[in-house]
Structures are given as structure tokens and as C-alpha cells.
Design a protein around this nucleic acid. Structure first.
Lengths: 213, 213
DNA sequence: TTTAATGTACGAACTAGTGAGTTCACTGTA
DNA sequence: TACAGTGAACTCACTAGTTCGTACATTAAA
């Protein structure tokens, strides 16, 4: 039999080696930042060697960009699950906000990578052909919701989709990205499970109050 | 005359040397992050030497903590200018929000330092006796405003001061901290002067709509 | 046999921190 | 008022350890 070995037994597997490196690198970069991350450390936690990082990615920076690309595309893919066309505008907004809320909470590494990338003034995103100008599918849904609400006379006319997206993001991102200094200064853990529902509802309330005022 | 030389001519000046180092270090850390900042680079931009950094601060980490302490205390001092007791609750909230908005915009280095410190999980703040548990004077003012609004039956009863502070902060911080990735992905500069007034009013509107709903 | 994939060992440059000695301002003393 | 003594402020040169990246040898697969 010339059957290919099962993927579990293969010694040499380009895709798996690449994926392994990318996976470890994502955690390392999210944990320590771009400058703080160590190529040797990433290599050590991989089932392969440092040589492979340079073989497949070229260098630390290209590896980091690859990590960013994968992280953004994964988020993008998940956001496609938005399905709010059958809901009333108010419910649709609330649903979109809650989905974003859950999403951010479920992907702390992504939030950290975004913070890190902002410290570097998004220079790596700008250098990535995949990411530069990659918009966001949730934005289309949001635009439709606002348009429906406005047409029905229930939402204010001057609400801009990107502004609303910004408000949702700022709330959800802040809760994760700034939780440590917030807890250190104010003594409140914004990620306390006991306050989760409160925050989730609060975000929806705020949006509805603003859009229907 | 045994008159001391004027402070401008003095060659040896403990306070000035310290302040010089701290000033340069603030920019360097805010610019490059804790790990990215180089002690040699800080020394070079100083009018003194690297040895003096170790002489006065002990090491890179202690210098960074000193930078954080100075930055937080400076912010704290400025926030004391809050004077809203004579205003109606609605106007007071708006005023507080706008002051915070202006404040964040005027201190981008501080916002960057906070982001950086969050990447490090606030471990340095926790290690600082000055900063750990340092609350925020604006919070007292906010508590009073909400109380007055609630007593007058104009504000909702379940509004928590720290939650409202969180909403204001998240909006203002996100606008600065995430402007680079936001611009790279969505093509919108949240700091565009032409949109400044729009955002400033939007924050106030949102808060009033939420609190009076 | 050819070539893609992988492992090992190493080096050049960098980086935080230090050892050791110098200069300056001031003080008490003769 | 001259001057030795003193400690704080300061300079210079160095080191031990780290870190990215690569040269070179080797192995598995087509």
C-alpha cells in the first residue's frame, strides 16, 4: 500500500509545523508583546526548532505579522455568524452588541495583540497586504440595522454605523484591555463573572437609549 | 559674595538631574514600551549619563515605576480642577465627561503608559506603594452628581459611579489607545480635529440618554 | 537522485548593570 | 582665610549574559 501515513504519524508536515509555530507564537506575542517575545522561547515551546521559524516565516517580524493576520481573520470568520435580519431593530442592536461582548471576552489574546499593535502604531498591520483596510463584516450588519431603525422612525437619524461600532468596541475592549490597571486603581475586577450580565445588559441599554432618544 | 550660583548655572543639581532623567524616560517608555525602551537610549537623550540612572533610580524597572508614579500623580492633580457642584446634574455630567475627554486627548503619553502597563498586567503598579489603590478624585465628584440627579428624580436609580466612570473612560481611552488599528482597518482617524466636537457631544448625549432613561 | 524539510552549533550585536575612580561644594579647624 | 577632610554627584570603561539570525550538516520524501 502506498497509502499516505495518517496525519498523526507523519514526521514531516509542512502545514502542521507552520500551524504549530503560529499557535505558540500567538500566545507568546500576546503574552509578552512584540519586543518582549523571544524567538528562542517560541521555538522551545514548539515541537520543532528555531530554524523552522526562519525557514517558514523568515524572521521575528514576519512571524508576528502572520500571527496578526491569523488572529484578525479568525475573528472575522466568527463574526460572519451574525444573523439579525429577522429581528426588530432594537433587538438586533442588542444582539449585535452582546455577540461582540461575548466575542471579546472569549478572545483575550486577540485583544492583547490589538493593544500591542497599537503601541507599535499599527505599523505591522500597515505592512500586511491581508490586513490593511480589512474592514469588518459586522459593520455591514450594523449599517442595515441602523437603516431599518431609522426608516421605521425608531432610531435617530444621525447615528453613524462606524460610530456605533466604536462605542460597542470601546466598551468591550476597555473591559478586557484595561482590566488590570482598573483593578489595581479602583479595586474592581471588570471580568468578575458576577458582574458579567450587568455589563452585558448595560451596554445594550446604553445603545438603545442613545439610538431611540 | 558666598551667594549660591543661580540654578541655571549649577553644574550639580540632584533635583534637576532626576527630573531630566524622569522626563526623558517618560517619553521613551511611552514610545517603546517597557521592554522596548533602552536604558542606553534614555541616558543618551539625557544631559547626564547612564550611571546616574542607576545612581538615582536603581534600575530600569524602578525607573519605569517612578515614571508611572509621576504620570498618575500629575493626572490626579489636574483632575482636582473639577468644579461642578453649582451645575444641574445633566450639565455636571456633561461637563465631567468633556473634561475627561479633553484630558485624555491632552495626555497621549499617559494613555500609552496605561496601555503598556496593562500589557504587563499592572504588575508594576501593584509593586508601587504610591499607586496601588490610588482611586480617582473625579470619582467623588461623579458620585455626588449621580446622587443629586437621583434625588431629583431625573437620573435612574441603578447607575453606579464606577460604572459610569468606566463608560466615560472606555470611550475616551479607546479613541486614543486604539486609533492606529482603527485607522488601519476602517480608514477613519478618530483623532481627526474635524470630528472632535462630534465625538465630544456624542459622549455627553449617550450618558444623558442612559442616565435619564 | 534530487530536493524540501529539519537539527545543531555558533557568532555578531546588543543590553542591563557595575567597578573604580574623579570632581565639586561644603564644613570644621588652625 | 587657607586648607584638609568628607560625602554627594558624577564620568568612563567594562562585563556577563542575552538575542536574533545563520552557516552547515543531515534526513526524509518524491
Amino acid at each position: 500500500m502506498a497509502a499516505p501515513p495518517s496525519s498523526d504519524e507523519r514526521q514531516r508536515d509542512k502545514d502542521r509545523t507552520r500551524a504549530d509555530i503560529l499557535d505558540v507564537a500567538t500566545r507568546e506575542f500576546a503574552d509578552k508583546g512584540y519586543t518582549g517575545a523571544r524567538v528562542d522561547e517560541i521555538a522551545e515551546r514548539t515541537s520543532t526548532t528555531k530554524r523552522m521559524i526562519y525557514y517558514y516565516f523568515g524572521g521575528k517580524e514576519q512571524l508576528y505579522i502572520a500571527v496578526l493576520e491569523q488572529a484578525y481573520l479568525a475573528i472575522r470568520a466568527l463574526e460572519a455568524e451574525l444573523d439579525v435580519e429577522h429581528l426588530e431593530p432594537e433587538d438586533a442592536i442588542r444582539r449585535l452588541a452582546e455577540l461582540t461582548f461575548d466575542h471579546h471576552e472569549a478572545h483575550p489574546d486577540f485583544i492583547r495583540l490589538v493593544s500591542i499593535e497599537n503601541i507599535h502604531r499599527a505599523e505591522h498591520i500597515a505592512r500586511s497586504e491581508v490586513l490593511a483596510g480589512l474592514a469588518n463584516p459586522a459593520l455591514d450588519g450594523l449599517t442595515q440595522i441602523l437603516e431599518r431603525g431609522r426608516a421605521a422612525g425608531r432610531f435617530r437619524a444621525d447615528a453613524d454605523p462606524l460610530d456605533v461600532h466604536m462605542v460597542i468596541s470601546s466598551f468591550c475592549v476597555f473591559r478586557l484591555a484595561n482590566r488590570h490597571t482598573f483593578a489595581a486603581i479602583f479595586g474592581r475586577d471588570m471580568l468578575d463573572p458576577g458582574r458579567r450580565e450587568h455589563y452585558r445588559r448595560m451596554l445594550g441599554d446604553m445603545l438603545i437609549d442613545y439610538l431611540t432618544s
